[in-house]
Amino acid sequence: MLKSVIHGDVRNQTGSNVCHRIRNAGHVPAVVYGYNVNTRAIELDKKEIDHIIRSYGTNVLFDLQVGDNHSSVMIKEIQRNPLTNEIRHIDLQTIASNKAIHTTVPIRLIGKEKVESSIGVVQQQLREVHIECLPDHIPESLEIDISSLAPGNPLKIADVEFGKEISILNEDYEVVAALTKAEKIMEETEEADLLETIVGTPEDLK
């Protein structure tokens, strides 16, 4: 399902100086590529793309309009400024509705409050999964119930039932979440603090 429309303009020039001017003008440099499609350099309106990401995340399809041409695309990669977190460049992939695609989807744990206590803490070890599915079946997130999680019995990919419309590409042995005794976490934290006191932080060693 297409979430929104974003407008793009063709870039006839490339290079760092051109991209710098584009960003100063309130736009974002981008490229569009995909199966049986020539790669195109374009620029997007910064406010429009920021709105889409804030509203829907990055795992959605949207309608890209460049001149009179419309295409269904999804975001494949975002490059950000490490200091300001502003978007510097975006890769977009054209999508065919009848062809399965690979993407990543965030995991959302539910039932956490039923198993956590003063002696047990849930540690989420996998925060996203790699999936393959048709574009219309891409979920915004995957909810995984951990209400029956027990100490010493971590929840693995193989233990979770996912919908038939998606294929999970992660390995079956990968741990999604585990219930760890609180005192063990405290011991690990204390050991890390002691090591930092003796050896110093990575910054101290430079």
Score class of each variant (00 low, 15 high):
S4H: 15
D9N: 15
D9S: 14
N17E: 08
N17Q: 10
V18G: 00
N24K: 13
A25N: 11
H27N: 12
V31Q: 02
Y33C: 04
N36T: 10
A41K: 12
A41C: 10
D50E: 15
I52Y: 11
I52V: 13
S55R: 15
S55T: 15
N59W: 13
V60H: 13
V60M: 12
L61Q: 13
L64Y: 04
H70K: 14
H70R: 11
S71L: 06
M74H: 02
K76F: 10
E77Q: 11
R80H: 03
R88G: 11
H89M: 06
A96M: 14
K99T: 04
I101S: 02
H102Q: 01
H102R: 01
H102E: 02
I110A: 02
G111M: 07
K112Y: 05
E113N: 15
K114I: 09
V115I: 12
V115T: 02
E116T: 09
G120N: 12
Q125A: 12
Q125N: 15
Q125V: 12
L126N: 08
L126W: 06
R127S: 11
R127Y: 11
V129P: 08
C133L: 02
C133I: 07
L134T: 08
I138L: 02
E143W: 04
I144S: 04
I146N: 01
P151S: 08
K156D: 01
E161V: 04
F162Y: 07
E165A: 03
I166D: 00
I168Q: 01
I168F: 00
L169W: 02
D172L: 09
Y173E: 09
L179K: 01
E183M: 08
E187D: 05
E191H: 04
L195E: 09
I198V: 01
I198W: 01
V199Q: 09
L205G: 00
